[in-house]
């Protein structure tokens, strides 16, 4: 094996066709208000976790929609489930339940239930 001193750089592009959209489908079915998000960022502005970590719920829900599963799994751990985002959301998205549903979907995928 030749050592080139570099490797083929990882593609940053979201490959939507290849990505796994099961979490998104699951959340849309179990918390339909998830569909009405307009990415305004009110949730993130008010988020306690976002003040001290790079947790960003607005971005997290986008990652769910795009099927960027690895990132979702990593990020979701930072949520403290305080529910302040739900209070603030102008579209009435039940953000707290969205988090719960994402966690459930991850668990079900790991258990091969979905």
């Amino acid at each position: 094996m030749i050592e080139f001193g570099y490797n083929i750089a990882k593609d940053r592009q979201i490959d939507f066709d290849k990505n796994d959209k099961r979490i998104s489908t699951y959340v849309r079915e179990n918390e339909p208000s998830f569909k009405t998000c307009i990415s305004c960022g009110t949730c993130t502005a008010t988020c306690s976790a976002a003040n001290f970590t790079d947790f960003n719920f607005r971005k997290l829900q986008l990652m769910v929609r795009r099927g960027e599963t690895l990132e979702v799994k990593e990020e979701i751990k930072k949520c403290m489930l305080c529910g302040k985002c739900y209070l603030a959301c102008p579209r009435g998205v039940n953000t707290r339940n969205v988090i719960i549903q994402i966690n459930q979907a991850i668990e079900k995928i790991e258990n091969h239930d979905i």
């Binding site: 592009q13 490959d15 607005r58 986008l62």
Partner: peptide, 12 residues
């Protein structure tokens, strides 16, 4: 670009 995610994207 999914400008809200800050990443380029391709989709068929």
């Amino acid at each position: 670009e999914d400008t809200l995610a800050g990443k380029p994207m391709k989709m068929s």
